[in-house]
Design a protein around this nucleic acid. Sequence first.
DNA 1: TCCATTTGATACCTCCAGAGTATCAATTCG
DNA 2: CGAATTGATACTCTGGAGGTATCAAATGGA
Lengths: 292, 292
Amino acid sequence: MDTRHMRYFVALAETLHFGQAAARMNMSQPPFSRQIAAIEKALGVRLFERNSRNVVLTTAGKHFLNDCRSVLAGFEAACRDVQLVANGAKGELRLGFTMYAAQGIVPKLVRLLSDAAPDVRLVLEERLPSDIDELLLEARLDAAVTLGNPTAPHLRTRLLARDRLRLIVHADHPLASAEKVGAQALASERLIAAPASVVPTLRSAIGAYCAAGGIVPHFALEPRLQHTIIRLVGEGLGVALIPQSLCSDLGETIVSRPLIDPPEFDVVLCAPTGSKNPAVGRLFELVKQLSF
Amino acid sequence: MDTRHMRYFVALAETLHFGQAAARMNMSQPPFSRQIAAIEKALGVRLFERNSRNVVLTTAGKHFLNDCRSVLAGFEAACRDVQLVANGAKGELRLGFTMYAAQGIVPKLVRLLSDAAPDVRLVLEERLPSDIDELLLEARLDAAVTLGNPTAPHLRTRLLARDRLRLIVHADHPLASAEKVGAQALASERLIAAPASVVPTLRSAIGAYCAAGGIVPHFALEPRLQHTIIRLVGEGLGVALIPQSLCSDLGETIVSRPLIDPPEFDVVLCAPTGSKNPAVGRLFELVKQLSF
DNA sequence: TCCATTTGATACCTCCAGAGTATCAATTCG
DNA sequence: CGAATTGATACTCTGGAGGTATCAAATGGA
């Protein structure tokens, strides 16, 4: 017994006519009759009551017809789905992202993927940039939206957007009324920034900006979360340089000011080179058609 | 592609070793390797990443493994179940019964069948004897517990029990205190009995009983339901002859009295001769082992 | 009643898919 | 560097699936 036999059986059960069923199977009647007989012999069950004029299903045959239909449907679905999975049109995609980069981009990406490949189950995980690198390396994430990082040769990377840093200060701070702010203005400020081990890209951008301005930055506080940085600035405990994309809706106690010659950085989609998940390839394909 | 190929695939996916997988399939490695290659070619999907030392599943292969397992399980279940259905160990049995006959017997029968053939879905329908005959004829019932009826040659019948009629009267009725009651005592009574068209067996038994006693019965009321007959007797509107098995729990207003030389009748299990449902045969088999 | 038609079963033949054997090539490990 | 392991390839062979011809039984119309 295999699926071919089931197809023969279903054909006969639906036509109740050996000749027509054989034709539907693109074969002649005699071998078809033999196959039906072989099925009944193999199962040890009479599936049809038949004489030279009539063919009818037995009770067992009726049940078997239902079962065969669902088995065949499952069989064909399996063969179809494996191709979809291979094309990245079905399966699972674990996508990491970080607050430092994701503002506005992740929703677009999710929409894009779920429109183009609705059968890909998207698992989103918000993490810190340093965690994302680690999770990608361990293959616990398939891809991630994070900050560009030149020290990542094992990653396939595609630029999604460029962003720039912007100064945020408490509304009562003297710089709150400045038109534009240069690096020198930060010389005496208590800077708040995430540690280099957590967000190396931004931290080195800030360092380079200060160095170019000839000052040595004073990092007064080093929380890990962007959210915390903003709250501390709101408490008046220091100033910070944060991505421009995060400067909307800061609340009434915080003011953001543009920097003179601001440091820029990349927001990228990245995945381990040679990722085994075909949905990753699909995602990169889709991102090609995207402009931010 | 058919189930054999799926089995090969599963074997390799589980062992990740061509030689061992081939051995599990009782064949040598070279044709096994060719079959795996043929599967991948037919699907157009690479299922294994392999070199001469390692074999691992691709992402698509992992999904396909799950799908194949469920398809194969369904396939085997279908082949197994069709045999169970043919044996009457699985399927559906629509069993009719009538109040006039069923007291105590149907529960026993249900217990018996659901113990011996738990996968037979039993559909019980309580009907009047005349309806049961019709439903059996139309194959809308597979079998029934009803009153023996000699005019049923198209039915396969098996005696389950014999029962006898017994008189019921209102507690205030003069016959309520009689030790035993003969046919003559019914000469002047208002009899309550179901019409002959509904319960021919009992009605003809009553008629024969009266004729043998030399009286002409006076049927004052002819309700169709046993339940109604008993209620009408309870209202003092007449007396009735009902199956002994129904004489327990009549309430305080009704008294039952044995008849002298009471008419007897059969309680039978019956089914259309040549019923297509194997579960019917199974039921008759089981009933053989039963004694009431 | 008989013959034509329909329909499933049987006999016999052909051929290819799938299994076997022998062998190769690549990798690993002592 | 050679022995061992493992998957791939080349070639052969066989069983089973399909084809053709034909039969047998049932039906229906003349």
